[in-house]
């Protein structure tokens, strides 16, 4: 079942800036969905439309079965905005209580959930300290805890690992995997491709307000699967005819079926060529991203 179903979302800001141009996205129940794109692609705008922070110029679709913009739906959605700021005068526990109460979470539940979430996010012992004493990584963890206070069915995280050290990133990845196991859907907005690749079931790539690719990483990279055969010595003359590409002493055969390289290997052996390696190769998310994005238009867009 789809938890988010968006069709033709458009956003035009005053001054005629076309931030979103007919975005269509589907996020399924119990999956981690990654939205990636260079800075300024419209990722945060899309997320903010889902969370009613921004009004769409045109939107149709549903979130948790209700139309986009329905406030009651937000009771079951957890949200961590990018560059969030908590009131400096609150402690970690007070932050969770405050935002929990705004989500209409009862006092008893707030008490139990805040303690367990602070422990789960590695903030135990810091609950009574003012948030202005927290590091960037701790604030990010507190932000995730805040997003989980209402026990949401859908979690929307905008750059959740921003400013978090490698250990913390791993912990957040593990947490996301746990949340998926609990049956929650996670909508992850990030430009950290390696992070997304490790946790996402499906991804969408957004460029200049449009979704250019959407699906599982496997399905998106299936066309790029190939075998690379490295040999020593002179390249046989027939190689160019039987392989997709010949690159120095490397033969490239496109496809994901191992049977396609067997006749080539047999022939190479028959000609006493030394086979150094046979490697199945597939595009990673970064390759996929670079293919989708015209990188000359988006300097510094990916990390």
């Amino acid at each position: 079942m789809a938890v988010i179903q968006l069709q033709d979302v458009e956003k035009v800001y005053r001054g005629k800036v076309h931030a979103l141009r007919g975005v269509t996205i589907e996020v399924m129940d119990g999956e981690i969905f990654g939205l990636l794109g260079p800075n300024g692609a419209g990722k945060s705008t899309l997320v903010k439309i889902l969370m009613t922070v921004i009004h769409a110029s045109k939107v149709s679709g549903t979130m948790l079965g209700n139309p986009i913009g329905n406030r009651k739906t937000l009771k079951n959605v957890g949200y961590l905005p990018e560059h969030h700021r908590f009131p400096y005068y609150l402690t970690g526990k007070q932050v969770l209580h405050h935002y929990g109460a705004l989500c209409k979470v009862g006092r008893k539940e707030r008490n139990s959930r805040s303690s367990s979430l602070l422990t789960r996010l590695g903030l135990a012992g810091w609950e009574n300290k003012k948030v202005n004493t927290y590091s960037k990584g701790m604030l990010q963890r507190l932000g995730i805890a805040q997003a989980l206070m209402n026990n949401p069915a859908l979690l929307i995280l905008d750059e959740p690992t921003d400013g978090v050290d490698p250990v913390g990133r791993r912990e957040i990845r593990d947490l996301l995997a746990e949340l998926r196991e609990e049956g929650r859907a996670v909508f992850l907005n990030s430009h950290l491709l390696s992070e997304l690749e490790m946790v996402c079931d499906r991804v969408a790539i957004m460029v200049k307000g449009r979704v250019t690719m959407q699906g599982t990483i496997q399905s998106l990279t299936v066309d790029s699967q190939r075998y690379e055969i490295k040999i020593t010595g002179e390249m046989p003359a027939w190689a160019k005819e039987h392989c997709s590409e010949v690159n120095g002493n490397m033969l490239v055969c496109k496809g994901n079926d191992p049977s396609i390289v067997q006749p080539i290997l047999d022939r190479l052996r028959a000609e006493n060529k030394t086979i150094v390696s046979v490697k199945p190769v597939r595009e990673n998310l970064e390759d996929l991203f670079m293919r989708a994005v015209d990188n000359t238009d988006s300097p510094g867009a990916i990390q």
Partner: peptide, 18 residues
């Protein structure tokens, strides 16, 4: 001004309150 400050307002208006 603090209430509508970027990063702070998103946290509040994304809650189920008109």
């Amino acid at each position: 001004p603090e209430f509508v400050h970027s990063g702070s307002i998103e946290l509040t208006i994304s809650k189920p309150i008109g």
